[in-house]
Amino acid sequence: MTIREGTSQTTQQSLYRRMVLKAEPGPPRLRNAVMAFVSGGLVCMVGEGITDFWERVLRISHKQAADPTVATLIFLASLLTGLGYFDKLARYAGAGLAVPVTGFANAMTASAMEFKREGLIFGIGGRMFQLAGAVIVYGVVTAFLVGIITGIVRLVR
């Protein structure tokens, strides 16, 4: 395949795009999957430990201990972000850290830290949700849709 001057722009573009796609080094999928599995599992294990801890310390049920557990994980992820370790861990852990609530905490804290120089209002206030905003919007939309479907199913039954 050759790309020469004179060929039309669209042909040139599609030929080049194909050439790039063929040569493009792909991400190490297997390694990323294994790392995500292991690190995601570790985060959940730590979470279970924290749940047990709150269950005993606060003398509440396992289900009730879920809320303080989420808060603790958010705190830890934000602390690691603030100390500059989270991005280094996430480089290897990938989805293992991004999918649990730790990823959400990192997205919020990283944005807040980044834009603090633009001030409290337009910086932290306005841009803290730059990355996490989409998660909230589509999380709420999904919850709403699932709620409606569940309601209808219950009505029909």
Binding site: P25, F86, D87, A90, A110
Partner: peptide, 17 residues
């Protein structure tokens, strides 16, 4: 990075290219 991509402390996996 902050202008074109993500905040500096945001953790993500970059593509090899």
């Amino acid at each position: 990075e902050r202008q074109y991509r993500y905040p500096t402390e945001y953790g993500s996996q970059k593509k090899p290219y």
